[in-house]
Deep mutational scan, measured.
Amino acid sequence: HNGKLCKLKGIAPLQLGKCNITGWLLGNPECDSLLPARSWSYIVETPNSENGACYPGDLIDYEELREQLSSVSSLERFEIFPKESSWPNHTFNGVTVSCSHRGKSSFYRNLLWLTKKGDSYPKLTNSYVNNKGKEVLVLWGVHHPSSSDEQQSLYSNGNAYVSVASSNYNRRFTPEIAARPKVRDQHGRMNYYWTLLEPGDTIIFEATGNLIAPWYAFALSRGFESGIITSNASMHECNTKCQTPQGAINSNLPFQNIHPVTIGECPKYVRSTKLRMVTGLRNIPSIQYRGLFGAIAGFIEGGWTGMIDGWYGYHHQNEQGSGYAADQKSTQNAINGITNKVNSVIEKMNTQFTAVGKEFNNLEKRMENLNKKVDDGFLDIWTYNAELLVLLENERTLDFHDLNVKNLYEKVKSQLKNNAKEIGNGCFEFYHKCDNECMESVRNGTYDYPKYSEESKLNREKIDGVKLESMGVYQILAIYSTVASSLVLLVSLGAISFWMCSNGSLQCRICI
């Protein structure tokens, strides 16, 4: 991952900044910058967002509201009850120091605090018919004063009620008058409520006091790749198909172990950190130390980045220098085999997901714990399936590479015959000098055995068991695999060879 928040398929997220979902939807004055928000790819909250409900109280069923919003990608904020005409018999300019803005008392931008007009609070009834052709999110509140005197001074009615009804919602609220500790300079409380109004449905408000009335509502448009994440990451000019709280993932790998919460087309989250597919040879310690064997393909974004291909070729060293050249036929066979294998694994496992966190309130801790156990169970199954699949494929890959290298080895052996000696570690020792032209003939299969047989015969008789390297004779190393990324691999195959001279070296080696 890149540690950044990015656009998702070209669409920017909605960053709530210092506000949370509650503050944004109710219209906390400190969240005025969010009022123009219309569309987004996903919503970003920060872990310690401080601006929620400015007048103390709870947004009821907040967790369910977050779940609903996680599939919303755009909205239209509109005046559901026009301020100047909807409440002619009531005062609608209630403000509070708890919702101060720029040093002055204020109130929510989407709600109206209705109080008595003169000395009376006549029963009010108002309704709205949803003609938007889509779901409408309606929010309101109920004020709970701290004393009967406060109730009387604001609403005149000691036994007030609030009723809200639609086809799918029907509740009646009565204020709970009680002494409470002071929070944000208030002994009173406000509880906030919401409902989704279906197209064509009607919502009716009736009250004799204590109503925090809707002013603006939201017509919602769903987008199934949307979601809500909690993150401290910063926004950058970048684009992605998959976003996590820790950063964007741009990967076609089937798995990731970065974060379980994802938005967009994302690899499946697994616990494993070692889900690797081999593309090189079986481990040979001396070669492995030099980083030549054991190439791997990573299938977990965050564990290993991208696929690494092994390729086969020849390396030689003689009086004229040293050089490398790919054996294109065996390399292409290996590439085709690995590509098919990788595609097979991805096809089997690479279903892209959006995974969002589930919200539970403080009273639902047991449910949250149960949900976590269920999620953990599914996660263990996914991890096991992934590891088992790759384990089985790896064994076949190792066998496949062994065969490829063996074929190259036999190709060289059949040409050199007794003009060189096998020394048991995949290397041959020449009994004759071999210049670049000679080396090329070994690589392309045109090695002239009779041409060098007499010199080889004489050297075999002279050496008589002495280690060949100390006599200045020449080696050919018969097994060799270097490691390159897919891009470098293609470039390498396009070149005939490249040279690395070893000044004054008397050794001649050709490596497979």
Results as ranks from 00 to 15, higher is better:
residue 233 A to L: 15
residue 234 S to R: 12
residue 237 E to P: 15
residue 241 K to A: 15
residue 241 K to E: 04
residue 244 T to I: 01
residue 246 Q to D: 07
residue 252 N to R: 12
residue 252 N to G: 15
residue 255 F to M: 14
residue 256 Q to S: 09
residue 256 Q to R: 07
residue 257 N to Q: 02
residue 257 N to Y: 07
residue 259 H to C: 08
residue 259 H to S: 15
residue 265 E to N: 13
residue 267 P to T: 01
residue 268 K to C: 06
residue 269 Y to K: 03
residue 270 V to H: 02
residue 270 V to E: 00
residue 270 V to S: 03
residue 281 L to W: 10
residue 283 N to F: 07
residue 292 L to F: 06
residue 299 F to T: 03
residue 300 I to P: 02
residue 303 G to I: 01
residue 304 W to A: 00
residue 311 W to S: 03
residue 312 Y to S: 10
residue 316 H to W: 07
residue 318 N to E: 07
residue 321 G to Y: 04
residue 322 S to Q: 14
residue 324 Y to E: 00
residue 327 D to K: 10
residue 329 K to A: 14
residue 331 T to W: 02
residue 334 A to D: 04
residue 334 A to Y: 07
residue 336 N to S: 14
residue 337 G to C: 09
residue 339 T to M: 02
residue 339 T to D: 07
residue 341 K to N: 05
residue 344 S to W: 07
residue 345 V to A: 05
residue 349 M to R: 04
residue 351 T to N: 10
residue 351 T to E: 00
residue 353 F to Q: 02
residue 355 A to S: 11
residue 356 V to L: 12
residue 360 F to C: 07
residue 363 L to M: 14
residue 366 R to Y: 10
residue 368 E to D: 10
residue 369 N to I: 07
residue 381 I to F: 15
residue 382 W to S: 04
residue 383 T to E: 13
residue 384 Y to M: 11
residue 387 E to W: 08
residue 388 L to K: 06
residue 390 V to A: 02
residue 393 E to S: 07
residue 394 N to V: 03
residue 394 N to S: 01
residue 396 R to S: 02
residue 398 L to G: 08
residue 399 D to Y: 07
residue 400 F to V: 06
residue 401 H to A: 05
residue 404 N to I: 03
residue 405 V to N: 07
residue 406 K to N: 12
residue 411 K to A: 15
residue 414 S to A: 14
residue 416 L to W: 11
residue 418 N to R: 09
residue 423 I to N: 08
residue 427 C to R: 15
residue 429 E to Y: 02
residue 429 E to W: 10
residue 430 F to H: 13
residue 430 F to T: 07
residue 434 C to K: 02
residue 440 E to A: 15
residue 443 R to C: 08
residue 444 N to R: 09
residue 448 D to N: 13
residue 449 Y to P: 12
residue 452 Y to S: 05
residue 457 K to M: 13
residue 460 R to C: 01
residue 468 L to W: 07
residue 470 S to C: 01
residue 473 V to M: 13
residue 474 Y to V: 14
residue 478 A to G: 12
residue 482 T to E: 12
residue 482 T to H: 02
residue 493 L to V: 12
residue 496 I to Y: 07
residue 496 I to C: 14
residue 498 F to Y: 15
residue 498 F to M: 05
residue 498 F to K: 05
residue 501 C to N: 02
residue 502 S to V: 13
residue 509 R to G: 05
residue 509 R to Y: 02
